[in-house]
Design a protein around this nucleic acid. Structure first.
Length: 301
DNA sequence: CATGCCCCCTGCACGC
DNA sequence: TGCGTGCAGGGGGCAT
């Protein structure tokens, strides 16, 4: 499922075909995804030009010359496919699991293709989302920062603000465990279940640990907070790098963005051995706030 | 205000 | 083999 690194990858993939291009035609095939489309969605998009495209948390935002911002979220199963004119055909050999080729994508289509953008450069961008947990809406640029979906979102984990001190400060009076605190979007934006599990593993911190224990005023707590901040940054940076490289391969053979293989250290590895050198632990799964947590009880404390 | 839980929806992994 | 069941997941919104 798309998490922050996938959303970043999709954003980078969309940028060259959307930025500085006009949306000439929009096909909107249903009235809602997770939330209703604005009633004038198509009218407000057609004949407007995308000035810039960026990511905030797991949202993709496109600023239009009309003064609107197009806000998009991939939810659980959302993806974009780009068809560009005059791309040489490639052999269908060697495609990665879960991906399908441009030719198949075109001929098949899908009942889950909900929105199609036709761009002035000839690119056709299709949004597909079987589970419809994604969303698209339009916001006036001036209202952007007050919009309910964006106004309470915390810092970007790949920006400069993430530090041990920030985590300690944010969690000092939290009564929940670390896992729950890290998933709370008002502290760190865009951290999802997978990368919280992976970050805690890298920092050797138990998801069950009380969040406030990062804030004790002693050297050990400071160190833990620093380790966690570093782990979050590294996990996400690595994943973006992995997505970026496979995106290049992918975009040349077919247009679908944002699906690539990851290997995780703990996520979805219940019962399997801990990957840490010489650690005899087995990965355990527990449920916290209704979500699965995967961790090594032996080396995460 | 802080926290917990439900729910939106479909594909998929199970078990019989 | 085929069918039914239950679960996963982001995150808003509501109840507590």
């Amino acid at each position: 499922m798309p998490e922050l690194p996938e959303v970043e990858t999709v954003c980078r993939g969309l940028r060259p075909v959307m930025e500085n291009n006009m949306i000439t035609r929009v096909e909107q095939r249903r009235l809602n995804l997770r939330i209703p489309f604005p009633g004038d969605f198509v009218a407000r998009l057609e004949n407007s030009t995308v000035k810039s495209l960026w990511r905030r948390a797991k949202y993709i935002l496109a600023e239009l010359d009309s003064g609107d911002v197009l806000l998009m979220h991939l939810g659980m199963s959302g993806r974009f496919t780009i068809e560009e004119p005059q791309i040489p055909k490639k052999s269908s050999k060697g495609q990665q699991p879960g991906m399908f080729h441009r030719e198949e994508a075109i001929s098949k289509g899908s009942t889950h293709d909900h929105v199609v953008f036709h761009m002035s450069n000839g690119a056709v961008i299709t949004y597909t989302d079987p589970r419809r947990f994604g969303l698209m809406t339009l916001i006036g640029a001036k209202q952007l920062h007050n919009h309910k979906l964006l106004k309470d979102i915390g810092i970007e984990p790949l920006g400069n603000e993430l530090s041990g001190a920030y985590l300690a400060q944010s969690f000092c009076d939290k009564k929940t465990n670390l896992k729950t605190a890290l998933l709370d979007q008002k502290f760190i934006a865009g951290l999802g279940n997978i990368y919280v599990c992976e970050s805690l593993y890298r920092a050797r911190l138990s998801p069950k640990r009380l969040a406030a224990t990062l804030a004790k005023k002693n050297a050990e707590a400071n160190n833990r907070a620093d380790m966690l901040a570093e782990a979050i940054r590294n996990v996400l940076t690595d994943a973006v790098a992995a997505g970026g490289s496979s995106l290049n391969d992918y975009a040349q053979t077919n247009g679908e963005l944002g699906y690539f293989q990851h290997s995780f250290d703990v996520y979805d590895r219940e019962g399997e051995p801990c990957k840490r050198n010489r650690c005899p632990g087995k990965i355990r799964r527990i449920v916290q706030s209704g979500r699965s947590s995967f961790y090594c009880p032996r080396c995460q404390r």
